[in-house]
Nucleic acid binder design. Structure first.
Length: 123
DNA sequence: ATTTGCTCAGCTC
DNA sequence: GAGCTGAGCAAAT
């Protein structure tokens, strides 16, 4: 069992305080690299890990300005829905995922392609 | 399948 | 400070 509490704190001139958006964002981007190509995770899963709300995860990903390099297209809704995408909308996001080998049927991602980073780190 | 209430960081006054 | 906005969720309908 890994303790992930540290992920939501930052150190500012020797003072430990709750992480703000910039720090959460960096941590978030790091976590995205744990997702294999052909797999996705969910806003909800990342929110649990970073001790915040799924909408905040969406908010943080929206400010990503490097698509592909930072694979924010690998984050989808907990019900398998595609979710939003700043660079061309869900149509583009869906195509990117398809290219990576993710199986999608009538707007929903195949359950078997969804991995939980939360479970991955708690193992 | 659709509606409803809840959520919380950041932005605008 | 108060009020609004989402790349969302879960429960109820």
């Amino acid at each position: 069992m890994v303790n992930t509490t540290l992920l939501v704190w930052e150190i500012d001139r020797g003072v430990i305080r709750k992480a703000k958006a910039d720090d959460l964002r960096e941590t978030l981007y790091m976590l995205l690299n744990l997702i294999d190509i052909g797999c996705v995770t969910t806003y909800n899963d990342l929110a649990k890990l970073l001790n915040t709300h799924p909408r905040v995860i969406g908010y943080l990903l929206k400010s990503n300005d490097k698509p592909i390099v930072i694979p924010c297209h690998r984050v989808i809704r907990s019900n398998g829905g595609i979710g939003g995408y700043r660079f061309g909308g869900k149509y583009v996001k869906k195509r990117l995922l398809a290219i990576e080998g993710v199986k999608i049927a009538n707007g929903k991602v195949d359950r078997r392609c969804i991995v939980s980073i939360y479970n991955m780190l708690l193992k």
